[in-house]
Design a protein around this nucleic acid. Structure first.
Lengths: 228, 228
DNA sequence: AGAGTTGCACGTACGCTGTACGGCGGTCAA
DNA sequence: TTGACCGCCGTACAGCGTACGTGCAACTCT
């Protein structure tokens, strides 16, 4: 038994490991092969292309989401749990998250979260169209948040990294940005994520058939047999 | 007058043009040079690296956002206008949007939208910390939405493209997904975007110092001091 | 047991990439 | 006129993804 027999799973694992250690740019077939101590072309016996390998990475990362869904809980709490589970992979595999997010994956790995989320939203009383739209909104928010956390945030980070947080921008041109430079420069990602999540849940609650009387637990959710 | 003198702007414009025509993967220094009818290395007299060029692309695209901000309008309407302006670039330069979104840019081009947005949120009565948090939420949602529209959506598109919209998934494993396959397969991006935008605005309204008497719904939800 | 088939690992090679380096021609100041 | 400069270019190098052919091991069938 000289070496393990080199399977697709082992290749994907090596790729994830390499991405996390040296970034997605460092990933090349030669590099991965060297990491595994095999020839470059041996990889192609298990993976049809580099693109497919990256899809495999996305799938593997995505499939590690832990869903401890409790169908008996209030739907809002179930949404919270699922959103956080989704976000948790970003902290486990920060650099791979970019790969996951910037990739259209056509596998069933991404379907299970959708299934759970739809069931949850349906249990809140939303009809099909509403549930789908709402799911899309939540996903958009989560993906956008992960993108920021991963560090590849789009528009407003320049204040933090390049320019000095507390200065560096012309206060005459950008008075607001200048005044809040310190706030813009720092960000508690978890707190920020929760903040937006609560906003969305609140908005969803207001749109739920139950209406806006959500003061307490309500406890009146129909919860009609979640699955099947 | 043989040819125009080849400036950074012309190079960036050619890059954008090429991205839109053939996708971001087709972009190479040689390709762009050929497009402009010059030698490859001539580009490096105006652009330090390919990475900087792509940053230039992001900056150029971002700077084309038209902000017709009316400080007299209701803040909610101003938020709507700004969010739509931001989204509009995705329809103008769909494929370049991926470049913009997946790139940390350190220029002032991305600062102006931030300035405008902060001013708007401040005018709604939010203090600095609230305005910044809320801005981040809106940006996360917008970025996530654009990512989906551009076609690189993350998790739940597989239903549409690969599997037949109205079938193809095992209804036993994924009953909800199966039942709503047709809904998941089609998406009116504009309508979807507006839907989430209204959700966020409603949630923001409920958190505004003015209180929640705007929409009529929402009712309680004191939302004391944002974070929990 | 021998023959045939299959599957995996590998080396080589091709066309592509980004870019460091040096040369070449034209314009302008002295 | 001469020298300096600047924009343009060709060459070269290391690295990329992967198409192709070869050889070795194990398994199946007669």
């Amino acid at each position: 038994m000289p070496t393990k027999p080199l399977s697709r799973a082992r290749i994907v694992a090596a790729a994830i490991d390499l991405i996390e250690r040296e970034g997605a740019d460092a990933v090349s077939m030669r590099r991965i092969a060297a990491e595994l101590g095999v020839g470059v072309m041996s990889l192609y016996n298990h993976v049809p292309s580099k693109d497919a390998l990256l899809s495999g990475v996305a799938e593997a990362v995505l499939s590690e989401i832990e869903f401890t869904d409790d169908p008996g809980a209030h739907w809002a709490d179930r949404v919270r749990v699922q959103a956080r589970a989704f976000r948790q992979i970003a902290s486990l595999y920060p650099r791979s998250t970019m790969v996951v997010v910037s990739r259209q994956l056509h596998s069933a790995a991404g379907l299970l979260p959708v299934e759970r989320a739809l069931a949850t939203l349906r249990s809140a009383g939303f009809d099909g169209a509403e549930a789908v739209s709402m799911l899309r909104v939540f996903i958009a928010y989560i993906v956008g948040s992960l993108l920021r956390e991963v560090g590849v945030t789009p528009a407003f980070a320049p204040v933090s990294a390049p320019a000095v947080p507390s200065a560096g921008v012309d206060p005459a041109l950008f008075p607001e940005v200048g005044a809040m430079a310190s706030l813009l420069g720092t960000c508690d990602h978890e707190e920020e994520f929760e903040f937006g999540l609560e906003m969305l849940i609140q908005a969803a609650t207001a749109r739920a058939p139950g209406g806006g009387q959500t003061g307490g637990q309500t406890g009146k959710q129909v919860s009609r047999e979640g699955t099947r």
